[in-house]
Design a protein around this nucleic acid. Structure first.
Length: 985
DNA sequence: TCTCTGCGCAGAGGA
């Protein structure tokens, strides 16, 4: 018997009985239930659910009349609509809804597109297609814009329309053929008149139904029913259509979904479809059946989106998608064609054997140009991205906007609640509004200044009660100011949440899909990236170097050291790519800047990119000084102030009126700079470059790094794989190689690699640490001056004598170790706290070590007293929580300027003096943590100091980390200082 | 066991 029971348990997919930390459950209107059990019977399904994290008490939910087909699993979160009879919910034909995974908001268009093809809707969620769209779509966008502007101005006269059209686009020939104000809808029984516009492009998030969308027009209407002889005022959604007047299920479904998602805002009973070609207004009055069927579609869609990987024997693999349609007509215009075929072959390469002829022909047509290695590269990275996306989704902070109260969110600094509009809303520029918010008087004393939100942050505006979620998004201009239009809510209390956004990995997947396309750019890149075809070089410089540029180039080269010169030469000779390894302190930025100058002088066009905005701007700031012109693409909010004049936004302000003006703006500069993610810019539909340079390349994941490479004939990757790799959150994805950058992958072709090994940052002793840890002695000092540079401490003598006298009066305290530590002539010190002891403390959200923090505080006080400038000091720790505890001790003004940051954030930067807190110190075995196991992170940490590096940690614990052990073994006796007890000062 | 930067968005029509 026991044996049997064991077997049955094994068969059922075992889901954790415990609810994970990030899941938030609740009862009430916006309830969230956890599914504990699913029992299937013919014709119905019973769920055991609970809205309490303790999973007690439980309730039941009976699904029937088609609802039993809902793909709900144990461990899912669901939302219940309808009512329960003492804990027993019923969802059937007549009543109730079940919303699966309600915190994944699905857009109205996704759902309506799933009516025709569920597979397309799922793929559409994964891959944002790149194709610029059709003429009709462009026309649609323009006409929408014109209509909405005319509606705002309440003027539909032909003159106004054509004026507005001119504003939208200078060259326009397509206007709605019927330009009268479309405000009436008549059928025999009712007359509907639009009386007022409440909003344009209203953004709606509906966590109750798991929906989101943008409503073209929200209108106030007067409904006159002949039979009742009554007048009714209503607010309703209006969906504009510029194409054929089809009144199709898709169009109507969109409207039905809009009425559902705005239920809490104004409870519309109906919505309208407005066809601009004819001016006809079609009422859409949703029935329970309509809503029921659309929510069922939503549930199926969200199920596929969330379960794109499944686990078999602890190994994840891609799940099957809904079947491919065999109706070629529907597929003809599908933008997901290639992804549809790729996915089919990626998941099951042999499926072509069993499928129908039409499908086989389709697969051949779309993917026939690809070899098995290509397909497996695609499916491998697709799996990695799906794994990573799942981890990111679980942590997705956006749902906190509706699941957490503002008070809860304020505690971790991501929110400001209880604010009111104060003062008038002003228009900043076209469609951008400036709002002022103020704490309502009840909570005024708390103030806004020290919330976690800072100017430049993206924020989401919602109402305090959670009825109007995601009303608008915008940027925080100054504390208490934002740019969104909310003038209609003058009496409402708002909350502002920091918006991390939902990035997902759609750029990764889009790039991967692009790599598989059948076309010149993709074919070439596939050959280099996937097939690893060896890069080719030409043999003679004279053929690439224009005669008139020779002198200029020679002049520029003068300032470079030998390996830097080699790098320049290699790039010029390359036909495919060059990899530049920039070891710490070897002047990567200078090298890139010089490279751009040379290429520019030769008349080559250059696409200059990096992963982060700051890295892009660092190069541009240098470039600017050499009078090399460039165009900087990207959000002004993120760009360095000194680079702002070079952005498209700023140049446009000076007057770009015609298409040729725009063309000029995009083509004028040889050098265009942006981040790797910024490649969706329209400039890339036209322009190709001679060279693409990618900085920070060893920190960028392969699918992102290849993005800009599509647009250039040759590329240069700059990085150092001995420093930090791309960050991958999902453990399995990391173990399957997601943290291998393209830089690392291509490095096997050593003929393409140039090493910059001459460094000017560290003095000899500091450099030798890194040399023994990572570079096997290859790193060299560029000058005797750099090699011997020491920290300057003008008042050291007085500090030392103070310490001596303290030692004399208190002989039990031997302070000689501090005196030794302070000496500039002792550039590397490891302060061993094993004996103190200085134990770490593990809290939720991180690890810290208060003793190390206190020690660092003392050391810095003395060093600053001895004359070290606070701005020359950097404090580094691997864990955020430790930074917090150190910063807390450095509050006094004496420390202003000391920069406390993580290893990761210090990459690419340096300071004269660096103090590194290892934090980890534990008596027990195990639980070592990942961060310090990484050789590369340690390498970064010890190569940030120019003149002096102080390390604080417990050698006995740290020896258990292989990289730290190697470091400790290298340290000479005089570098190791063992502390016996806590400092007495 | 905790390191973090990118992103505008959903929808613009066509069968």
């Amino acid at each position: 018997m026991d044996h049997n029971e064991g077997l049955i348990k094994e068969e059922k997919p075992k889901k954790p009985r415990k609810v994970p930390d990030h899941v938030i459950l609740s009862g009430g209107l916006n309830n969230r239930y956890w599914v504990l059990e699913v029992e299937e019977r013919p014709g119905h399904k019973t769920l055991t659910i609970s809205c309490s994290k303790s999973l007690h008490p439980t309730e039941t939910c009976l699904l029937k009349d088609g609802w039993e087909m809902t793909p709900v699993c144990c461990g899912d979160v669901v939302h219940m609509e309808g009512h329960s009879d003492s804990g027993a919910w019923l969802v059937d034909r007549e009543q109730g809804f079940l919303v699966l995974l309600p915190d994944s908001l699905i857009s109205g268009t996704s759902i309506s597109s799933s009516i025709r093809c569920m597979r397309r809707a799922v793929l559409g969620d994964m891959f944002k297609s790149f194709d610029g769209g059709s003429k009709q779509m462009l026309n649609g966008t323009i006409v929408h814009e014109v209509f909405q502007r005319a509606a705002t101005a309440k003027d539909f006269s032909l003159e106004t329309l054509s004026k507005l059209a001119d504003q939208v686009l200078q060259t326009i020939s397509c206007l709605p053929s019927n330009s009268r104000a479309p405000s009436r809808c008549q059928d025999s029984a009712t007359v509907v008149t639009v009386t007022e516009l409440a909003d344009i492009e209203e953004n709606v998030w509906s966590p109750r139904f798991g929906l989101k969308g943008k409503i073209d027009v929200t209108a106030r209407v007067r409904i006159q029913r002949r039979s009742h002889r009554t007048l009714e005022e209503k607010t309703v959604p209006l969906e504009l259509k510029t194409g054929k007047e089809s009144n199709s299920i898709e169009h109507r479904s969109q409207v039905i979904l809009y009425t559902l998602m705005s239920l809490e805002r104004y409870n519309p009973e109906a919505g309208f479809l407005l066809y601009l070609k004819t001016g006809n207004l079609h009422p859409v009055v949703p029935t329970h059946m309509d809503r029921r069927e659309l929510l069922k579609l939503r549930n199926t869609l969200v199920h596929y989106i969330h379960n794109c990987v499944d686990k078999e024997k602890k190994r994840s693999r891609l799940s099957r998608l809904p079947d491919i349609l065999t109706n070629r007509q529907t597929c003809q215009y599908c933008p997901q064609k290639i992804n549809c075929a790729l996915y089919e072959r990626a998941v099951d390469g042999n499926s072509a054997d069993v499928s129908e002829d039409v499908v086989r022909d389709f697969l051949q047509l779309e993917t026939g140009h690809l070899t098995p290695p290509h397909l497996s590269y695609f499916s491998h990275w697709l799996l990695l991205c799906c794994l990573e996306a799942a981890t990111m989704e679980a942590k997705n902070g956006r749902k906190r906007v509706w699941l957490r109260t503002p008070e809860e969110s304020e505690k971790n600094g991501s929110c400001v609640g209880n604010v009111q509009l104060s003062g008038p809303v002003t228009i900043q520029s076209e469609g951008v509004f400036l709002h002022r918010f103020q704490r309502s008087s009840a909570v005024l004393q708390k103030g806004l200044a020290n919330s976690g939100l800072a100017s430049g942050d993206r924020i989401v505006v919602s109402d305090q009660e959670g009825r109007l979620v995601g009303l608008a998004t915008g940027y925080l201009c100054e504390v208490s100011r934002t740019c969104v239009n909310l003038s209609k809510f003058s009496g409402v209390l708002f909350r502002l949440d920091g918006d991390e956004g939902v990035v997902g990995l759609s750029t990764h997947l889009t790039n991967l899909s692009r790599l598989m396309e059948n076309g010149q750019d993709s074919d070439r890149l596939r050959e280099l990236v996937v097939d690893l075809r060896p890069p080719e070089f030409i043999s003679n410089l004279s053929s690439v170097l224009p005669r008139e540029a020779k002198d200029t180039v020679a002049n520029i080269l003068k300032g470079l050291n030998k390996p830097q010169k080699q790098a320049m030469k290699k790039v010029l000779l390359s036909k495919d790519y060059t990899l530049i390894v920039g070891m710490p302190g070897t002047g990567k930025t200078t090298t890139i800047c010089t490279l751009v100058r040379i290429l520019h002088a030769c008349g080559f066009s250059v696409l200059l990119t990096s992963y982060t905005h700051s890295a892009v701007d660092n190069i541009l700031l240098k470039l600017k000084r050499f009078r090399v012109g460039f165009l900087r693409l990207g959000q002004g909010q993120k760009v360095h102030p000194d680079i702002l004049p070079y952005t498209e936004e700023s140049i446009r302000k000076k007057g770009v009126h015609t298409l040729s003006d725009l063309e000029q703006l995009y083509n004028k500069e040889l050098v265009v700079a942006t981040t790797c993610m910024g490649i969706k810019h329209p400039i890339f539909t036209r322009r190709r470059f001679d060279f693409c340079i990618v900085d920070e390349a060893s920190q960028i994941s392969q699918p992102i790094c290849m993005g800009p490479l599509f647009y250039a004939k040759r590329f240069v990757l700059v990085g150092d794989h001995q420093q930090l790799p791309p960050i991958v959150q999902n453990q399995e994805a990391r173990s399957l190689g997601m943290d291998e950058s393209l830089f690392k992958r291509l490095e096997l072709h050593s003929e393409a690699v140039v090493q910059l090994n001459v460094q000017y940052r560290m003095n000899r002793q500091i450099m030798s640490l890194s040399n023994s840890l990572m570079y096997e002695g290859r790193l060299e000092c560029g000058s005797e001056r750099a090699a011997t540079a020491l920290l300057t401490l003008p008042f050291l003598v007085s500090v030392q004598s103070e310490l001596s006298s303290y030692s004399k009066t208190d002989p039990q305290h031997d302070l000689a170790w501090i005196q030794a530590t302070l000496l500039p002539s002792n550039p590397v010190c490891f302060l061993d706290c094993s004996m103190v002891p200085a134990l770490e403390s593990v809290e939720q959200g991180g690890v810290s070590n208060h003793t190390e923090a206190a020690l660092i505080h003392k050391l810095l006080s003395l060093l600053i007293k001895a004359g070290c400038k606070p701005s020359d000091i950097g404090v580094i720790a691997p864990y955020r929580l430790q930074l917090k505890s150190i910063s807390a001790l450095l509050q006094s003004s004496a420390f202003t300027g000391v920069e406390v940051n993580t290893v990761d954030r210090y990459q690419g930067r340096d300071k004269s003096l660096i103090v590194f807190s290892f934090v980890k110190s534990t008596a027990e075995e195990g639980n070592l943590g990942e961060l310090l196991k990484d050789w590369r992170r340690l390498n970064v940490a010890i190569t940030r100091a120019k003149h002096k590096l102080l390390m604080v940690g417990s050698a006995t614990t740290l020896r258990r980390y292989a990289p730290v052990e190697k470091l400790l073994n290298h340290l000479q006796q005089e570098n190791m200082i063992s502390l016996k007890h806590i400092i007495p000062l």
